[in-house]
Design a binder for these strands. Sequence first.
DNA 1: AGAAAACGAATCAATTAAGATTCATTAGGA
DNA 2: TCCTAATGAATCTTAATTGATTCGTTTTCT
Lengths: 183, 183
Amino acid sequence: MATPGVEVEDGRILAALALALVDRPRASLQELAGAIGISKTTLYRFCRTREQLIERLINHATQVISETLRKAELEQGGPLEGLRRLLANSLEHRELTAFLMYYWKDASVTPSEEAEWNATLDAFFLRGQQAGMFRIDIAAPALTEIWVNILVGLMDAERRGRVARSGLAALVERAFLYGAAAR
Amino acid sequence: MATPGVEVEDGRILAALALALVDRPRASLQELAGAIGISKTTLYRFCRTREQLIERLINHATQVISETLRKAELEQGGPLEGLRRLLANSLEHRELTAFLMYYWKDASVTPSEEAEWNATLDAFFLRGQQAGMFRIDIAAPALTEIWVNILVGLMDAERRGRVARSGLAALVERAFLYGAAAR
DNA sequence: AGAAAACGAATCAATTAAGATTCATTAGGA
DNA sequence: TCCTAATGAATCTTAATTGATTCGTTTTCT
């Protein structure tokens, strides 16, 4: 690639924009730019329209998360190891994860990729069920939903100061796998 | 009261508006009105400004949920019974619950009531921990966050057709209490 | 049927946001 | 240092949104 540092910088801007958009979905482009410390003009040069911006963010987030899913090698090793790799990688892309969840619904932009993502997680949990790791009295898509919501919810709770940042991974894993009941 | 049916009708409109606002937060008042099957003018007569509308919705939702919490009598009987009453009542106000979660962040309107709601749930889970019902290696506020996110997340998943409506209560309870691991 | 209330379409002024451009300044690299 | 690319402030046009009003129609209740 001719420009190595550009994508990194773009990634930073995209992550910041994702966070700002989740925080205030109704913010104007002006406010959005201000929220991430750039001018309206620079944001304009980055993406000419809001529609383009959202589309670019969804594409980027989907790509990063898909890469995260791929790197997690969910098909390798035990389900628990796969889940832990997925968790660690997801926590390194909090903003994009939160954004993608938030704009999950109006993902008419890339319905195929989103469905693919869903399918990947669904298949992972299904395999985990067949391997005896996950309970079988909850359907795999429901497991995906529970996982995603605990993950995103606790990441958000951390931002709001409701839970500590350290130990977040262990908290997500514990809550998802074993629940809140005392054993 | 002089007008018995008015509040019921208002409640219907508010619930529909809550749902529409969660679905498309950036919708204009015109689109919002159309989404719930009324004209822009009627919506205007209902609430003159968007700010008023949000404030009214937050107040109403907070009130309904608080009433729900009160009716759940979380301090009566065992924690499990309290949790089940809370769950059943919450599921009867899906729209308002989802709305309140969604607009949780910009709840600068009634910070006191929101904090009170948090405090009520936190205290409930803390009592449950002291009663030996909930695990003590997860802080009570984290339990609140996990509960709320599983509840709202699965209600939303149901709307998206990812999980079946029937059995939603049992699913939430199972996921929250016992987690996804096979026992 | 007749009166009162509710509703919606249309219109309008004022405000705001989006999209685009220009120009001066600044930061960085050759 | 000098040149270039990047940035931001300001401006401008156009489009969209808001808040408000009027008036004809429909619904509803008696």
